Simulated assay, not measured.
Amino acid sequence: MSKILPSAAHPTAAPAHGLGRTPEAAVRLTSVSKVYGRGTAAVHALRGVTVDIPRGSFTAVMGPSGSGKSTFLHCAAGLDRPTEGAVALGGSELGGLDETALTRLRRDRIGFVFQAFNLMPSLTVLQNITLPLLLAGRKADQRWLAEIVERVGLTGRTGHRPAELSGGQQQRVAIARALVTRPEVAFGDEPTGALDTMTAKEVLGLLRQTVDELGQTVVMVTHDPVAAAYADSVLFLADGDIVDEMTAPTVDRVADRMSRLGAWA
C-alpha cells in the first residue's frame, strides 16, 4: 500500500523555482501568449507568460475561471501551440517540432493525469497502465512496472477492469499509466476533481510521494486550496498572466490569496 504524506510535510521538497531562469528547468515558458479567435472576437488566454518549472518539483497552478490555467497546461505540455513565445521541455524546443515529432515527445517524455480518468474500459488495469508503451512499440521494464503498481497500491488488482474499481483506484491506474514511461514531467488537470475528500487526499499524497521519493516533476492545475497545499509552490494566474507565486503553501494562505487575487490582477 502506498505511503500517504500529510499535506504539511514536504521533507525533500525541491527549491522554489521563482520566475527567473534556471538551467535545471524541466519546463520553460518564455514570453508565451495564446490568442483564440481574431479581431474583436479575439480572446487572450495567455499574455506573455515566462516561467521555469524546476526538475523534481511539485507545482500547482491556480486562478479564477477564465484565468488561463488550462491553456497554460496545454501549452506547457505540448497539447496546444502558443501564438507567440517558446516552450521547452528539458533542452527540446517544442515550437520547431512537427505534429508527428510532437506526438512522439508527448508519448515518450510527458505523463498526463486528468479529472476524467480516461481509462479504456475493455482493458485490464495492467493493460491500461502499459498502453503508452504498447503505442510506442516499447517493452515494459518489469521491475519498474512492478514498483509503480506497488506504489500506487494496485498490487493484486492488475487483472481487474476499470468498472470493477472505485474512483480513487481508477485515478491510481491513471497515475501509474502516467509514470510507466518514466516521463520528465507529469501534468495533472484537476486530477482530484471527481473524487471525494478522503480519496482526493490519498491521490494527492501519492503525487507528493512521486516527487519526494522518485524525483518526479509534477505540474497540477487545480481550483482547490487543499490540493495546492501539497505542492512545493503555487503559481497564481489572472487574466492570462502569472500575477503571484507562493512557496511552501498552506491551505489557509492559498485560500486567502485566491480570495484577493482579482484585486491583485
Results as ranks from 00 to 15, higher is better:
residue 15 P to D: 15
residue 10 H to E: 00
residue 262 G to T: 13
residue 190 E to L: 11
residue 148 I to M: 11
residue 179 L to A: 12
residue 202 E to I: 12
residue 224 D to K: 10
residue 249 P to G: 04
residue 114 F to L: 06
residue 52 D to V: 03
residue 35 V to Y: 13
residue 225 P to M: 08
residue 256 D to M: 02
residue 132 P to I: 05
residue 189 D to K: 07
residue 232 D to Q: 03
residue 142 Q to Y: 06
residue 250 T to W: 01
residue 230 Y to P: 11
residue 119 L to R: 08
residue 13 A to L: 02
residue 47 R to C: 09
residue 213 E to W: 03
residue 259 S to M: 14
residue 42 A to V: 00
residue 114 F to I: 00
residue 71 T to F: 03
residue 102 L to S: 01
residue 9 A to F: 13
residue 57 S to Y: 08
residue 101 A to R: 14
residue 248 A to F: 00
residue 186 A to I: 15
residue 90 G to P: 00
residue 210 T to W: 00
residue 133 L to W: 07
residue 41 A to P: 03
residue 52 D to P: 00
residue 222 T to M: 02
residue 200 A to D: 08
residue 221 V to W: 01
residue 257 R to K: 15
residue 14 A to H: 10
residue 161 R to G: 11
residue 129 I to N: 00
residue 41 A to K: 12
residue 222 T to H: 01
residue 95 G to S: 14
residue 262 G to K: 09
residue 201 K to C: 09
residue 148 I to Q: 04
residue 182 R to N: 03
residue 207 L to K: 02
residue 31 S to W: 02
residue 237 L to F: 01
residue 20 G to N: 14
residue 43 V to F: 07
residue 24 E to C: 01
residue 193 G to A: 14
residue 46 L to N: 04
residue 164 E to I: 08
residue 213 E to V: 07
residue 159 G to M: 02
residue 215 G to T: 09
residue 209 Q to I: 05
residue 11 P to L: 04
residue 208 R to W: 01
residue 261 L to V: 01
residue 38 R to E: 15
residue 36 Y to A: 06
residue 197 T to E: 15
residue 249 P to F: 02
residue 122 S to P: 01
residue 215 G to S: 05
residue 68 G to N: 00
residue 110 I to F: 10
residue 160 H to R: 13
residue 88 A to T: 11
residue 83 T to M: 07
residue 192 T to K: 07
residue 152 V to W: 01
residue 79 L to P: 04
residue 95 G to V: 04
residue 252 D to K: 13
residue 154 L to C: 08
residue 106 R to F: 11
residue 180 V to W: 07
residue 31 S to N: 14
residue 22 T to N: 12
